[in-house]
Design a protein around this nucleic acid. Structure first.
Length: 882
RNA sequence: GGGAGCAUAGCUCAGUUGGUUUAGAGCAUCUGCCUUACAAGCAGAGGGUCGGGGGUUCGACUCCCUCUACUCCCACCA
């Protein structure tokens, strides 16, 4: 028996993880037990583990391990997301380093590279999750672009198209002229950029002729004036009454455009007069729609001026800006220019200035789906934890926009629309079906006449099927069919653990898909984690470099330590400000458990010994406390108060089990322990390990295996959680009273510099369980406890009270009477203040009349207790003054 | 600009339909201890009047209003 004094996680974690895998403990098959299912929020296939994943997956693992130990058939389905934008960007970047441009290779060639990349780098993150102890059913690992999952996605598109929910329409996208692609809003980085505001004169036209009257319009983009299709003022702007209904001429090209009125215009910005350029600004586009303005697109896909611009054709937009300003100045149209700083969008990938560009996209109508999805949450069929997110959820569902589901990328599920030579299109799940449909339009057509849409679907269009498609995907006819055995058993899933940022992107859409394809909810509880931030509250990010490497962290502190450190400070929905000291605390806790084990293991048992009174009472007490704690812990879990649950266990183990229970029963130096106490202690330790297992899987397995004479194939992780038995609240309270007494004695010892080794005697008066005297004797080193009546008046010492029980500790001349008096006086003062507050309540007739009986009775008890204490303390003071 | 949320010890947070001893925990701090399970430890102690103001109530950290600070979401101004 020579266990080291420090727990070394590196010696146990990998060992037990492979043991669990070897024994297939994580795997689940449908059976007659109740199912408990979690699907992982699939991380990006090319992603690496960050602290957000750590928190999120720790929570999932705690839930799944606990469910497993509650006897449920627990199934945690892992997998990854193809993350089209992020992954494609990575592949493009990688090809670039090899001197290959995406534009130079074919779609098929590109996809070949992308799959190679995926095979090579994909799923690193899943391997990293194993270090954390994640008990995922790895046999069920899925990828959103697995063949069967992809075919679900395609079928879903066809389904909604035929239902009339999917349509094609024009929309303004964020165009990256360098990357030659549209990018999502999330990939546009807005940066404060100094630019200039140009004040341009637009002359009024009368009967097609220029007048000398003009208006001034402020713009940051003079190179787009050729695409202007109107001038806009606020309808209530009296300054421009004279202008309303008139027409003006675009400078340089002298094109006549109307003056319109729209309340979008702010009267107090610029000149209160706005040029409308529908093709090159999202707001202008919307105003254009309202006023049925024509759209003139003067920029090509390289953001160079095209022939519609009439002038400066072929010039790049910024060069054109410089030139046109000069031209405008020469023509007398430039009134002034002033410096101006505005938020300009840049492409995350190429850093090119984003150009708003109109293009044809695919959309999914959301109104009806959102209405359905809202009902589940409003009626609490789906619980959001914390429920403050219900508001946010409702707000979004009531203001939902149609969902743009097309992306100008290659990596993803290609839109199953086929174009006929005449521009018509058909939507079918494959080319053969498409041809049949096309031939209904034109029987002459052959396969080679069909051109499939170049775009792929938004990644969320595959992830919203995730809880369904991981169990049952891809078969013909999806979604119109009966569930298979797996789906029928595991679905709906139980809990979903995810970040609030994707409540709409993902969670709400899964609810929609669940309703549409399975006629019900996809999960019952949605636990929303907070964002992991650094100590000063900044979001952890690669670019800030403020995120610790989770793998290093686990190497340094152990996976259990990291799990505990994160969970202790994270309640649902609140951000966690991460600091290494938290993980240190987790590591220290591991070590505490380890050393408690070392102590217990070191004890020699002597069968002939009878159980001492203090051991007997300690065993009874801890039995009660354990049951009470289990009850509270279960309640915490029901409410998803995971950190409270863990904190409860932390204190139960550290304070009650180690600092009190083990210290009480600890044999005196070199002594042996009686059998009964030893056995009870082993049972308690075993139960504590089981309670701790969901939070700290590795150390609990290690110690449990060490404690029990296990055979291969046994494990703590598949055993049942201990249940709460009947317990005595009185006993728990009495021991609390004894603990308070002991703390008082220790405190007096320290303030008087009396060594803990020096035995003292104690006098007691009041209602105190004699059965606990033995504990006080052992824990406070008291050699005799005597009734107050035996105390000689002349005795010097220190008095204190616990509740209404009086204690006296004889200390001879160590005690200074004046100090004692001062201490007692301050205590009396405190009690008197307290009594005043209580009396005030009780003398208030309205309080006595209105407050509930229990509350009033409690106040009376407070009053009498306080009065008793005051009188006793006053008595003591008087005695001391003699 | 619109919407939501939060504000409790030095730090991170609890405080569960307003009422059980004039607010709890963990960490940190301070004091004393290397007491053979653990110094990643043991024993003890100090510390807040619940962001400011107003209101409802017999009673408010808890409900309402308002101001302030911060955070998030959405829309962003030519």
């Amino acid at each position: 028996m020579d266990l080291p004094a420090k727990y070394d996680p590196s010696l146990t974690e990998d060992k037990w993880y492979s043991y669990w895998l070897k024994n297939n403990f994580f795997h689940s098959e449908p059976d007659d037990r109740e199912a408990y299912t979690i699907v992982i929020p699939p991380p990006n296939v090319t992603g690496v583990l960050h602290m957000g994943h750590m928190l999120n997956n720790t929570i999932q693992d705690v839930l799944i391990r606990r469910a497993r130990m509650l006897g449920k058939n627990a199934c945690w389905v892992p997998g990854t997301d193809h993350a089209s934008i992020a992954t494609e960007a990575k592949v493009v970047a990688k090809l670039k380093t090899e001197g290959i441009e995406k534009t130079d290779i074919s779609r098929d060639e590109f996809l070949k590279h992308a799959w190679e990349w995926k095979e090579k780098h994909g799923g690193i993150i899943l391997e990293q999750l194993k270090k954390l102890g994640a008990s995922c059913d790895w046999e069920r690992t899925k990828f959103t672009m697995d063949e069967d999952l992809s075919s679900s996605v395609v079928n879903t598109f066809v389904y909604f198209y035929k239902k009339g929910w999917i349509y094609r329409g024009v929309r303004m996208v964020n165009w990256d002229p360098e990357g030659q692609t549209a990018v999502s809003d999330e990939e546009v980085i807005r940066k404060e950029t100094p630019s200039k505001l140009f004040y341009l004169k637009y002359f009024i036209s009368e009967n097609g002729k220029t007048t000398d009257k003009f208006i001034v319009i402020a713009t940051t983009r003079p190179e787009t004036i050729m695409a202007d299709t109107a001038i806009c003022v606020h309808p209530l702007d009296e300054r421009y009454n004279w202008l309303k209904g008139k027409r003006v001429l675009i400078p340089l090209i002298n094109k006549e455009i109307p003056v319109i009125e729209d309340d979008y215009v702010s009267m107090d910005f610029g000149t209160g007069c706005l040029k409308i350029t529908p093709a090159h600004d999202i707001n202008d586009y919307e105003i254009g729609l309202r006023h049925k303005l024509p759209v003139i697109d003067i920029l090509d896909k390289y953001a160079k001026l095209n022939d519609k611009a009439q002038i400066l054709i072929g010039e790049e937009r910024f060069a054109a800006r410089r030139k046109i300003v000069k031209m405008l100045a020469e023509a007398g149209n430039l009134e002034k220019e002033e410096p101006y700083t505005s938020q300009i969008g840049y492409s995350e990938r190429t850093n090119a200035v984003i150009e708003p560009r109109l293009s044809l996209q695919w959309f999914l109508k959301m109104n009806e789906a959102a209405e359905n999805a809202l009902k589940y949450v409003e009626s609490d069929q789906i619980r959001l934890i914390p429920d403050k997110y219900k508001n946010t959820y409702r707000h979004w569902m009531e203001n939902v926009h149609d969902w743009c589901i097309s992306r100008q990328l290659w990596w993803g599920q290609r839109i199953p629309a086929w174009y006929l030579p005449n521009g018509e299109f058909v939507v079918e799940s494959n080319k053969e079906e498409a041809l049949k449909a096309a031939q209904k339009i034109n029987p002459e057509l052959s396969v080679s006449d069909l051109q499939q849409d170049n775009d792929v679907l938004d990644t969320w269009f595959s992830s919203w099927l995730w809880p369904i498609s991981v169990f049952d995907a891809g078969k013909p006819g999806f979604p119109d069919r009966e569930p298979n055995k797996e789906l029928a058993y595991y679905y709906p899933t139980n809990d979903l653990v995810t970040a609030p940022e994707i409540l709409f992107f993902w969670v709400a859409r899964m609810v929609m898909a669940g309703h549409e394809f399975c006629g019900g909810l996809p999960f019952r509880n949605v636990y929303l984690t907070g964002t992991v931030r650094d100590k000063s509250g900044r979001k952890m990010s690669k670019s800030l470099g403020n995120s610790p490497d989770p793998i290093k962290l686990m190497e340094n502190f152990g996976a259990d330590g990291v799990r505990v450190g994160m969970l202790l400070c994270s309640s649902a929905g609140t951000d966690i400000l991460f600091d290494e000291s938290q993980v240190e605390q987790g590591r220290n806790f591991s070590n505490k458990i380890w050393n408690a084990f070392r102590l217990i293991k070191s004890w020699q048992v002597d069968d002939s010994l009878t159980t001492s009174p203090q051991n007997k009472v300690a065993v009874e007490w801890f039995d009660s406390l354990l049951s009470q704690s289990i009850e509270t812990m279960n309640d915490h879990f029901e409410k998803f108060r995971l950190s409270d649950s863990l904190m409860l266990l932390y204190k139960l183990f550290w304070d009650d089990f180690c600092a009190w229970y083990l210290e009480i029963i600890k044999p005196v130096q070199g002594g042996a322990m009686d059998k009964g106490t030893h056995e009870a202690t082993l049972v308690y330790f075993d139960k504590l390990l089981k309670l701790l297992h969901p939070f700290m899987p590795f150390i609990t397995e290690e110690l449990w295996q060490n404690l029990s004479n296990t055979k291969d194939g046994e494990s703590i992780m598949i055993l049942k959680q201990p249940k709460a038995e009947k317990y005595s609240t009185d006993l728990i309270l009495n021991v609390e009273q004894a603990k308070a007494t002991i703390v008082n004695i220790r405190s007096i010892r320290q303030s008087k510099s009396i060594s803990p080794k020096e035995p003292l005697s104690l006098y007691i008066k009041g209602d105190f369980s004699e059965a606990l005297y033995c504990i006080i004797k052992k824990m406070a080193n008291i050699n005799a406890i005597k009734p107050y009546s035996e105390k000689e008046e002349s005795l010097n010492g220190s008095s204190f009270m616990v509740g209404t029980v009086e204690f006296f500790l004889p200390l001879g001349n160590l005690v200074n009477k004046d100090d004692e008096i001062t201490r007692i006086e301050s205590e009396i003062k405190h009690l008197e203040g307290f009594l005043v507050a209580v009396n005030k309540k009780l003398s208030n007739e309205k309080f006595v009349a209105n407050a509930s009986k229990d509350v009033v009775e409690m106040e009376y008890k407070k009053q009498s207790d306080a009065m008793t204490k005051i009188s006793k303390l006053t008595q003591l003071k008087r005695e001391l003054k003699k």
